[in-house]
Design a binder for these strands. Structure first.
Lengths: 216, 216
DNA sequence: TAAAATTTTTAGATTAGTCTAAAATTATTA
DNA sequence: TAATAATTTTAGACTAATCTAAAAATTTTA
């Protein structure tokens, strides 16, 4: 088995890989709130274990076995988040830190039973897809509200920013997962957007429109 | 917060304290499968944090704050065991190792919500009492089957040996928590006992009789 | 109660993960 | 494309937890 720290590195590399092909030392350091020198040390260790492809100064990618571990951590994180919200009535902005701890519990039996206990949910409380017990999941194609033009519709299905502050803001605005929205107006000057949600007008900034994801 | 290791030391000292007033370095080393030298190092650290009372060569006791932490770990361990058996259908002999990991999840909010979700159970699957959110619990007075004389009755309420091997044996013999037993006969020679359970005769050794606990 | 046995502590190493400061490499830009 | 800037790695040190081997203290026993 791997240590918590190794698991956190693999998870961070996985998430960063979704945006840029190869991941840099500094990107990882920023994501994990640590120093580049520490990252270099750990990259050597993960490369020795053949969990990442690493060449000095060239950035890293996950090997298939590294990716498998990363996805299993993400599966655990998202299932625990679902459990916390659906069974223990936590709010969607309160679960991240606890799930960061729970995702390192090693038992596969536990997580598979938890999955079944909850009816094999496909999405976590923030709309992110939950990998199945084989690590498979489809990344549904979501686009930000900011990609819509006037009169287009969508269903709120995810967020790009997972911070409590953003989630609490959405909650207050009643912009929660599953709601149908329609773009009523786009402000040419600042690109802010007026949405129609359940016949109410909601005005959101360009930044919010960028971080709120919809399916069609 | 304390490290997993510190928590494990405090828990071990707590359990050992139930049998002998003061706990020795070697006892702790045996319980934690480590060496006496390692224990001495850790005892110094825990004493610095005022979690134990420690004087060289004299053994240790928990301070009130050390005991509080130990009990909170035990609360978490037992609640998770209850969850695993009652909600996820694990068997009572399969839950210990997973609970050893789960007991270190730090969120008090999580464990209090879990407690409520399950209806505030008072005993874990092995009959051990679960401390409430203030750390309070009564150690019900149990005695081993071996303390009974012929024709005395009792209700199976706990075990002294928590090993999988023993729990699986009890399961096979249908000697599970809640069953009423009556001593039919005690063998003078080897102190083995014949029990009457639901009108069936069950023959158990002295060792088993010593490790099976009943209330009256 | 002195010698022997046991227990406990100390001394000195080791491993994992981290850090700062300096050196090496790569990227940018003038 | 040479100088400058930014990134990345190396070197050396630190903390937490562990270990072995040896020394010190306590307990047992003869």
């Amino acid at each position: 088995m791997n240590t918590f720290t190794e698991e956190n590195y693999l998870k961070a590399i996985y998430h960063l890989s979704l945006q840029s092909e190869s991941v840099s030392t500094n990107q990882i350091a920023a994501a994990l709130n640590t120093k580049a020198a520490s990252v270099t040390d750990m990259l050597k260790k993960l490369a020795d274990k053949e969990l990442i492809n690493y060449a000095k100064y060239q950035g890293v990618t996950l090997t298939p076995s590294g990716e498998k571990i990363a996805i299993s951590i993400i599966r655990k994180h998202r299932l625990w988040e679902y459990f916390l919200v659906e069974k223990l009535n936590f709010k969607w902005d309160e679960v991240h830190d606890v799930a960061e701890e729970l995702e390192h519990i090693s038992s596969k039996e536990l997580i598979d039973r938890l999955d079944n206990f909850m009816g094999n949910p496909r999405y976590d409380p923030h709309g992110d897809p939950i990998p199945d017990s084989n690590g498979l999941f489809k990344t549904h194609e979501l686009k930000p509200v900011s990609a819509l033009t006037t009169n287009e519709k969508g269903i709120i299905s995810g967020v790009r920013d997972h911070s409590s502050a953003f989630l609490q803001y959405l909650e207050r605005m009643q912009l929660t997962i599953g709601k149908t929205i329609k773009v009523a107006e786009i402000n040419d000057y600042d690109h802010s957007v007026i949405l129609l949600v359940e016949d109410k007008k909601i005005h959101i900034s360009r930044e919010v429109a960028n971080n709120l994801l919809i399916s069609i």
